[in-house]
Design a protein around this nucleic acid. Structure first.
Lengths: 211, 211
DNA sequence: TTTCTTATGTACTCATCAGTACGTTGCATA
DNA sequence: TATGCAACGTACTGATGAGTACATAAGAAA
């Protein structure tokens, strides 16, 4: 953005950089199609032939851009977990007390779980992965879990959160906000943001009336 | 139990009633083995050969006692949903205000979701089922969902629950309490009952401190 | 023009299962 | 004793799908 760029007309002749960008876009498209298929029919049931067909390409092309089926899944999962990681980092940087920061994080957490890659994280069961894949997956999830616990602990420490068991509280919150990933189909009614906000509100205030 | 019964020695010769009872027990054992396999590896990944091997029988024997693979799953799911249905009926009969009854139900709900058949309900995704299976499954789930909403609505009506959106609240509660089914492996630390009670407590009171 | 590389498709192999045909054994009944 | 039926197991069929070998086409480079 610092140097002025000349406008070229849309040419069928691609420069080396164009080729690279195209390659990236194709990789991205494959990932997108795969995560949709995985979410819609489950990892095991979704076939790579299916994914390929949805892009009107052939299966070996998928193998060109990503490795085997598990690697496709791992990439999807990693994407989702990176989004969560960013959200956690953001929450930690934020001003305000523990509860405020946690609330922000929870909202983002819920929203991400309704996004394609986030849903994939929530819907993927450990045991479809190889030993190494599982270890990788679990390590990343543990970091998110730890971030959630840290925020809860901070809130408990500064008094903005009730003196609850940190582990169990984080588990309960995460569970509640993971669930939409199993259900949300973007079919509408409410936007993901609105749904997330409402759920977080229920969790923060509880269902018992406040005097 | 009204007529006195003679004590027989354990004989290898079975009466017709014994045969029937044995048949039932075998059917039960198959179901148990199947639900464990489904929960452990997922419906699609778990093979009936596997289930059969775990009982040291052959696959056709499974087909003798239950129909095809989907019917085995449907039976497991139905079992779990029947447990939930009973819990709902019980909660409705109970004395006390809406919140009290809901709280009881939520605890049972969570406990059932950590039991074999309950876990199966939570972990089974619609889309592995046939059209009819899916319809059956959804209808049963809808009844549970409705019972949960009714209890929330009753609590809102009698003032024992804060004036929240009934649908979203039920969804949030159910989501939070479904989640342990994805994780709980009976490995211990806490009993299912203790875990359920703690989670319900967090949900009822919320995480924000009460003055 | 020849050759190398990149991108892609066709057409396989091989493994895994769901589901089944059919045999066997043993008890029960006629 | 003959016949029927209940309770299994062995050994298949057929489908599906992951992963691969190899051909091909088209541009880039030499």
């Amino acid at each position: 953005m610092t140097t002025p760029e000349q406008d070229f007309i849309d040419s069928p002749f691609r420069s080396p950089e164009d080729r690279l960008r195209e390659k990236d876009q194709k990789r991205e498209a494959v990932l997108r199609a795969a995560v949709r298929a995985f979410n819609a029919r489950g990892f095991q049931a979704a076939s790579l032939d299916e994914v390929a067909a949805s892009l009107r390409i052939s299966k070996p092309t998928i193998y060109r851009y990503l490795g085997n089926k598990e690697q496709v899944l791992l990439e999807c999962i990693t994407r989702g977990l990176e989004l969560l990681q960013e959200a956690a980092a953001e929450a930690e940087r934020e001003p305000g007390n523990g509860l405020t920061r946690l609330t922000h994080f929870l909202r983002r957490y819920a929203e991400i779980n309704m996004d394609d890659f986030g849903r994939c994280v929530v819907r993927t069961d450990d045991n479809v992965l190889s030993e190494e894949g599982r270890a990788h997956f679990r390590a990343l999830k543990r970091r998110i879990d730890q971030a959630m616990r840290d925020l809860v602990a901070a809130g408990v420490a500064d008094g903005s959160i009730a003196p609850l068991d940190v582990r169990m509280t984080a588990f309960t919150l995460a569970g509640a906000l993971n669930w939409p990933g199993q259900w949300y189909a973007a079919q509408g009614e409410q936007s993901a943001e609105a749904l997330a906000a409402t759920m977080v509100d229920v969790l923060v205030r509880g269902i018992a009336p406040r005097s």
